[in-house]
Nucleic acid binder design. Structure first.
Lengths: 116, 116
DNA sequence: CCGTATCCGACACGATACTG
DNA sequence: CAGTATCGTGTCGGATACGG
């Protein structure tokens, strides 16, 4: 009977989603990553691009660094410049990013259509 | 120059991700949907399957219904039974679900490997 | 420019108890 | 069983100010 198998599969997916949301859930993480896909950015550039407070940005960047998505680069030649750069590992998120943004686009269009 | 194009694309993706997170962000929405993929479920079944409080489940189900992902079905034959069922539209999330859970699985494995 | 510290309100989330 | 009401906690997240 497939019941049991289905249940196992479901539980496994639930756990996996948990892990994923724990790492990249929240309001900012994916958005920061998208912004950095455009190219390395400095702290203030990110802040302006995302309309995020310094406090949150600082926190989230640390978190992203700890989890291996982002690297903080310090160029010591004067003037000293600090940039944030995506790591190789962050590329593993591309499918998620693609799926989310393409769905978001369609969803927004649906909402617009319904209102008319 | 591709700079401008890239910037536009980035902003568009940021907006789309916003829309997506607004609709399906948070700790519970996707998990409820996954649980229902296994088959229709009653309130208490969902509660036990997800370890979610009645309060949150009630809220999230209303939200999911409003956004067209879930339908509340009432079977009036005694004994009266109330079930929650996924709508057709909820299938549009399958790519996201797939991407998230497969990434989550790999990510967890990575964490395990690193710890050894 | 790159952040950190502090204060504060809003809300996500949980536990418990309760109603029809 | 299907929810709602109440209460309490923690985190989210912004505003402002400040120091390296």
């Amino acid at each position: 009977m497939g019941q049991l198998l289905e249940k196992k599969a479901c539980e496994s997916r639930l756990g996996a989603i948990d892990d994923a949301l724990y790492a990249i859930g929240g309001k900012w993480k994916l958005k920061i990553i998208i912004a950095l896909k455009e190219g390395n950015k400095r702290f203030n550039e990110l802040q302006r691009a995302l309309n995020i407070s310094a406090r949150m940005l600082s926190r989230e960047l640390k978190d992203l660094e700890l989890n291996g998505f982002v690297e903080r680069k310090v160029y010591t030649e004067t003037p000293i410049v600090i940039e944030y750069e995506l790591t190789e590992y962050s590329n593993s998120l591309s499918e998620i990013l693609e799926a989310l943004s393409s769905w978001g686009k369609k969803h927004r269009q649906k909402l617009i259509d319904e209102r008319s």
